[in-house]
Every structure is written in C-alpha cells, then in structure tokens.
C-alpha cells in the first residue's frame, strides 16, 4: 500500500514526477502551499492587489479560484458566456457551476454574455468569419482574450489570473517549438507584464500537472463541468497532450523538465530579450481602445464589425 509521506496513512494521490505520495488531508494542504511558492517565485501578485480570475466552470479555473481564496487573496471571478450549446447547453451548464461556486463561497462573479454584448454567439461569430469556418476555437480564443482585458481594465483589476496548468503550457510550448515560433516562445511564461491598458496576466497553476488539478478538484468536492467543450474534439492541443503523456509515462517528470528548462533558457535570453506585452510598438484600437500591433481596428473589432 502506498503511504502518505507526511503521516504514513494510506495515500490518495501519488505523484511519480515528484516521487511524492500524500493522503487527502496532506494533499489538500500541499497544493495551496506550492501555489503560494510559485506566486512568490514568479512575483505574480501581492495580497494588496485585486485579482480577476477567469473561470470557465472547468476543474482548473474553479480550483484556482478556490486556492487563491484559501490563501487569502482578493480574487473576483469572470465568466464569459460564449453561447456554446450544441444541444448540450454547454455554456449554460458551465455558467451555473461558476455561479454555484461563487454563491457557496460568497464571492463576486462578473458575467459577460458575448451574444448580448456583440450580437453573436461564438459559433455564429465563427460562421461569419473566414478565420473560423467550422472550427470556432481561434475566434473563441480571440474573444476571450479581448473580453478578459476589457473587464480587467474597466473594473480596475491589477491582475488577470487564468487556470492554465502544466499540461496546457507544455502542449503550447511543444507546438511553438515544432513551429520554431520565436515570438510566441519569447512571450510564453508564468507572467505577462502589464502594458498600456492591459492588466498583468498570470498563470499560478503553470507548474501543476493536469492530473494534480483534477485530484485537487475531486478531493475538495468542487463541482466542475466534466464534459469537454463540444468543439474541442480533434484540437491540436489535445494531440500534443497525448504525445507528451506517452513520453511522461516512460519518463516521469518529463513534462515538468521540458517546461522548467524552457523557462530557464528563455530567462537566459535564448529567444531574445525576455520581456512581455510592452516590447513592441502598440497603438490603441480606435474601436475599443485596447492596444493592437497594427494601426487601425484590432482583430476583435474587425471580427465583430464585419
């Protein structure tokens, strides 16, 4: 029987990558302790700052919110309703789970409905855009980034936190490495500094395995949306995750080493000066005021005005 390293009771979670097994109680203490360590190490935010947590109703973002509150940070939630139904009521269910979580913990949740704001749901926006014929993921990502930035700016939040875990980050890194996408590699990291009109972006879960976050949500009794977004099937990120997990299975710790060695290389300047949002010349979009790299409307305003 696998035993908890701290108390010798039966272990609930075994992490081969850390050579560490813990019982339920010690696992639920270990996760926020580690999160706090990463928040401080990467200078993500301080207890005085106001954090906006982007919540989707999934295990990672709701667990992140839970962890930040347990650690005593000032964290409000933001749910962006994308209008994804596909006969499953996917967005409606996700929103209900976020609302239940917020109500149960007495937390403030902002809800933005994309269709109400702009007249189109994400599938409808994807239909009318050349960018997303049949596959709304690119349009969805663009919209979410735009709305997260807008709400953080309009409501005066210092920091925008997302629930990206290690598997998410390793999959993106893997894709960017295969493409030698230097600019993306230079900008990927636990913190993207604030720019003019843009809040700092942070990923406090970036060193937690996806399995660790699922175990946290399960053991904390957090109700989250278990079903995959109906559009995620066949997503490239899932393909990269599957490959990385095959390698992880043979070599425990590989995903973490891949990511941490990347961060070190990036810090050492392998991809150029390690900087963030403010390193290229940006212009305010005449439509929404958010910074954009080319003069004229930003990609989001072009998308909704078509």
């Amino acid at each position: 029987m696998m035993k908890c390293r701290k108390c010798g009771e039966k272990a609930a979670v075994n992490m081969r990558q850390h050579k560490l097994a813990l019982c339920k109680q010690h696992y639920l203490e270990w996760v926020p302790e580690q999160a706090e360590r990463f928040i401080k190490k990467y200078r993500m935010f301080t207890p005085e700052e106001r954090i906006l947590v982007a919540v989707s109703g999934g295990k990672d973002s709701l667990s992140l919110w839970d962890i930040l509150i347990r650690l005593g940070y000032q964290a409000d939630g933001l749910y962006i309703s994308l209008g994804i139904d596909e006969g499953l009521g996917y967005s409606r269910q996700s929103q209900a789970l976020c609302e239940t979580f917020a109500a149960r913990h007495g937390l403030k949740l902002h809800v933005v409905d994309v269709a109400r704001e702009y007249g189109y749901t994400i599938p409808a926006l994807a239909e009318k855009s050349r960018r997303g014929q049949g596959k709304p993921c690119a349009v969805c990502g663009l919209t979410k980034r735009h709305e997260m930035n807008r709400i953080a700016r309009d409501w005066g939040y210092d920091v925008l936190a997302t629930g990206h875990n290690l598997d998410d980050e390793a999959a993106v890194l893997f894709g960017n490495t295969l493409a030698w996408a230097g600019d993306y590699l230079r900008r990927q990291g636990p913190v993207l500094p604030a720019g003019p009109g843009l809040a700092r972006k942070v990923k406090p879960l970036c060193r937690f395995y996806e399995r660790e976050m699922a175990a946290y949500a399960f053991l904390r009794g957090i109700e989250y949306i278990y079903d995959e977004c109906p559009f995620a099937q066949g997503a490239t990120s899932l393909y990269y995750k599957a490959i990385l997990n095959r390698m992880e299975n043979e070599r425990p710790g590989l995903k973490l080493t891949f990511y941490l060695n990347f961060l070190e290389a990036r810090q050492a300047g392998l991809f150029g000066p390690a900087s963030g949002a403010a390193d290229e010349e940006l212009h305010p979009c005449p439509g929404c005021g958010q910074p954009t790299s080319a003069p004229g409307l930003c990609s989001f305003c072009r998308l909704v005005q078509k």
Binding site: G58, C140, D167, E210, A214, C229, A232, A235, K241
Partner: peptide, 8 residues
C-alpha cells in the same frame, strides 16, 4: 475513471 485531460 475520471478523465483529467481537457482541451481548448
């Protein structure tokens, strides 16, 4: 078994 991997 609870699947832990999500995409997007």
């Amino acid at each position: 078994l609870v699947a832990v991997i999500s995409g997007g």
